[in-house]
Design a protein around this nucleic acid. Structure first.
Lengths: 110, 110
DNA sequence: TTGACATGCAACCATTAGACTGCATATTAT
DNA sequence: ATAATATGCAGTCTAATGGTTGCATGTCAA
């Protein structure tokens, strides 16, 4: 879980996922074309994404193909987003209550 | 968006969100009781969560109450998770295709 | 077989992150 | 008024992060 969040924390890595979203199965050199950094830096980012299993690779001769794997994102959704979602309504109720309180206070001053 | 992902990248900060999930509106000192670090460190974490608007605060006398705000998580869901979700089926199809290929290759060798 | 291409590996460097200590300020209660 | 409580702010330290360069290895094509 920590790996996944850390992997997503960097904008370049999120961009890499975006590129794979646009076209899956790209090679390292292809992915490099979109980013303003050296190939070696991209390699590091990709390996972090691999550790988080957000990217899966397959060798094809001398080329390494990179594929997007969205399963970890599903995990984040299930164990984080959806869990907290029930609170979305709560914060709205809180805000509503506060507004009502302020409204009442204003009336008290009348 | 970057703020949100970076805020979520740290386990202590995710734990803080969890504590607020269990009981909303806790003070700084209350939140400190759950974490193995100094109050000042917790303050920094909370300010990062505030920057990401994952936590909203309200002063009450000398106490600062902290509230969970899940709206940014919704953003992550809408602009990241759900976007990539349509690919979940794709990777399964990819895997299926690969398995079929391997199966065929094995048959070719018969 | 040789040269070009695709990638890997290691060392290095600057910046940031996450922890700490120490002191300051503001509010509450006695 | 004074002491206790709740928080803020500034400076320091270490380790991790994100980038670099240089060289090595493996594969394809002429």
């Amino acid at each position: 879980m920590d790996n996944i969040f850390r992997a997503l924390a960097d904008a370049s890595r999120r961009q890499l996922l975006d590129e794979l979203f646009k076209r899956n199965g790209q090679t390292l050199t292809e992915l490099c074309e979109h980013l303003e950094m050296t190939r070696q830096s991209v390699t590091k980012h990709l390996s972090i994404l691999e550790d988080a299993q957000l990217v899966v690779t397959e060798w094809q001769g001398r080329s390494k193909l990179h594929y997007l794997n969205t399963a970890p994102l599903g995990e984040i959704h299930d164990r984080w987003i959806s869990k907290f979602d029930q609170h979305r309504v709560n914060i709205l109720q809180l805000l509503k209550r506060k507004l009502e309180e302020e409204h009442n206070e204003r009336h008290d001053n009348d």
